[in-house]
Deep mutational scan, measured.
Amino acid sequence: MEVRTIKVFTTVDNINLHTQVVDMSMTYGQQFGPTYLDGADVTKIKPHNSHEGKTFYVLPNDDTLRVEAFEYYHTTDPSFLGRYMSALNHTKKWKYPQVNGLTSIKWADNNCYLATALLTLQQIELKFNPPALQDAYYRARAGEAANFCALILAYCNKTVGELGDVRETMSYLFQHANLDSCKRVLNVVCKTCGQQQTTLKGVEAVMYMGTLSYEQFKKGVQIPCTCGKQATKYLVQQESPFVMMSAPPAQYELKHGTFTCASEYTGNYQCGHYKHITSKETLYCIDGALLTKSSEYKGPITDVFYKENSYTTTIK
């Protein structure tokens, strides 16, 4: 009895394709271990004539594949690729409408935090270190965002349907971005203890939790000093293409032309909904596939993004 075979390709990165001759009487799992086709788990399936010449994702289970996976995804987590594939199996079914010149995501599976993050990423200057993220990001900007969303979920250790947080998501993504040249110098002034300067680099240099107003941050924000008295913390120097200011959701007025974009969060910790506000020729609110415009805006804002380049204080 002759062994019926077909020729397929296996890959971990969709760049390096490895030619395989597979036995049609055995499952993919018996031949390769966990195997995925377009995100779908085909591990328990036997090869079919229609699979001839198709590319299958496999887990990096030998040295060659491990090197290829690390170079593309910059992670050695053995569960990463499987999590990416199972997320992709959902995100490829989502709709990605162009809204006001940006790629958004039609609401499904509690994905409003991903839509808000995706919209924000198209408006701030950011370059990702893992080629996987950078490639998928370019495709997302062009309207094909399924891979990018699935990668975000995998890097953030999230599953489809789980509630997510924009600030946490951005923080994970910033860790995989090139923020080497970003720098922030802060000064804390206390009447009792004097003053202390701190220099922050990388992710810490672009994120701040405690106030939404970048102007206020430049002037000074009140913080408790270690001595128990009130101290003032203010920005001395900022070198970065953008800054992200966050605070627990509270009524906040966004003035046209003073910011790049913002995240609105309605609801409580267990259950809520994100919308995205962007400042173009007027203010726009993007909620999944829905767009509304207004000249002014007041609502429960939790993150505001500002364009920056270089700032030095005039406070002496």
Results as ranks from 00 to 15, higher is better:
2 E>M: 11
2 E>V: 09
6 I>R: 07
7 K>P: 12
10 T>G: 06
14 N>V: 06
21 V>L: 14
27 T>K: 10
28 Y>G: 03
31 Q>H: 08
33 G>I: 05
34 P>D: 07
41 D>W: 06
48 H>F: 12
48 H>P: 13
49 N>D: 15
51 H>D: 14
52 E>N: 13
55 T>C: 08
58 V>G: 02
59 L>G: 08
60 P>A: 12
60 P>H: 06
60 P>T: 06
61 N>Y: 14
61 N>S: 14
61 N>G: 15
61 N>M: 13
62 D>S: 15
63 D>T: 11
64 T>Q: 15
78 P>E: 15
79 S>V: 08
81 L>Q: 07
81 L>F: 15
81 L>A: 04
83 R>G: 06
84 Y>F: 10
84 Y>C: 02
85 M>S: 04
86 S>Q: 15
88 L>N: 02
89 N>V: 12
94 W>I: 02
95 K>I: 12
98 Q>Y: 09
101 G>C: 05
105 I>K: 04
106 K>G: 15
108 A>Y: 06
123 Q>S: 08
127 K>I: 09
129 N>P: 04
129 N>H: 13
130 P>L: 03
133 L>Y: 02
135 D>W: 08
137 Y>R: 04
137 Y>E: 05
138 Y>H: 13
142 A>T: 13
142 A>C: 15
145 A>R: 02
146 A>W: 08
154 A>Q: 04
156 C>A: 07
160 V>N: 02
163 L>G: 13
163 L>Q: 07
165 D>L: 04
165 D>S: 15
168 E>I: 07
173 L>G: 04
175 Q>L: 09
177 A>C: 14
178 N>W: 03
180 D>V: 07
181 S>P: 07
181 S>F: 14
184 R>E: 04
185 V>A: 01
185 V>R: 06
192 T>P: 04
197 Q>R: 10
200 L>R: 07
200 L>E: 09
205 A>D: 00
207 M>C: 09
208 Y>R: 04
209 M>R: 15
209 M>Y: 15
212 L>I: 09
215 E>N: 09
216 Q>W: 03
216 Q>I: 08
219 K>D: 09
220 G>D: 05
223 I>V: 14
228 G>I: 01
232 T>W: 10
235 L>W: 03
237 Q>M: 11
237 Q>F: 11
240 S>K: 02
240 S>R: 00
240 S>M: 01
242 F>Q: 00
245 M>H: 01
251 Q>L: 13
259 F>P: 05
260 T>R: 06
263 S>F: 02
266 T>L: 12
267 G>A: 07
276 H>K: 00
285 C>N: 09
286 I>C: 00
286 I>T: 03
287 D>Y: 00
290 L>T: 14
297 Y>D: 00
299 G>S: 05
304 V>S: 01
305 F>W: 08
309 N>E: 07
309 N>A: 11
314 T>M: 14
314 T>Q: 15
316 K>N: 15
